[in-house]
Amino acid sequence: MEVGWWGVLIAVLGGAIRIGTPFLFVSLGECLTEKSGRINLGLEGTLVMGAMTGYAVSLHSGSPWLGVLCAGLAGMVLGALHSWICSFQRVNDIAVGIAMMLFGTGLAFFLGKPYIQPSAPRLPSIDLGAWSDIPQLQAALQINALFLVGIVVAVVLGWMLKNTAWGLKVRVVGESADAARALGLPVDRIRILSTAQGGFLAGIGGSYLSLYYPFNWSEGLSSGQGLMAVALVIFARWQPIGCLWVSLLWGGAAALGPSLQSVGVTGGYYIFNAIPYIMTLAMMIITCSPKRTLVGVPRELTVTR
């Protein structure tokens, strides 16, 4: 079936979901962490470690879902390590994040050597496009359950942050550590938990890369998805549901370059492929202003001081 230029639209739609899902998980993880007043720049390492762990466990156990779980647990350990180190006085969370990035990717590459060759079982996909008789659309709507899980997590996380006692505690710690202490809240423990949970989500995002799309474990697997989480969260205004839209937008933008080439728009692909970065920077320039602080920003965050 000829789709021509419609192919670009389909690719952007499909790409939004396919490429966007790992962004969704890392940005949700980062969002939760930042809500508690910490920034974790080490999610790149967490993501890569999650990708490796997921692939390895899926290979050994034969169950990709067990792989996803273990990827999350590996991410949780790295997240907890990050925030435990940061809970000491005068330790800079951004610096620790960069060191964690090095440590996480290094560890994943080191332990992941034996898993580059073998093929692990892949996560199954769900056909949401069966109603359509256009094969391209069917393929674009062939999604993974993790995407749906991500949507649920985004909604639930947003609701919980707003409406539950736990959410309130996290936000108070993120707004003002002093106020939280005055209320008798265990600031460090809440932050460690939030960062560990954030790491869990980022680890799952990594396992999506290795176990579903592009479905591969190699040392070049991630191209900065984890690093970008920080930018996505600002873009999303620290709203979990915003993370969903921003991730979809990013996925779609990343799919634009290759799909334009497939219909014959061949020039400037380096620039086209940089669109997501340019777009984020432009958004930040437009929406930020020195006269007011951003809505939703946790005041304890080092990036916003």
Binding site: F103, F109, F110
Partner: peptide, 24 residues
């Protein structure tokens, strides 16, 4: 040993040094 060995070492050294900041 794989190339990543030195990545791990850099990670460990820098984590410990950053951690030591709290000792000053």
């Amino acid at each position: 040993l794989p190339d990543a060995t030195v990545l791990v070492m850099q990670g460990i050294i820098f984590l410990v040094i950053l951690f030591s900041e709290t000792l000053y």
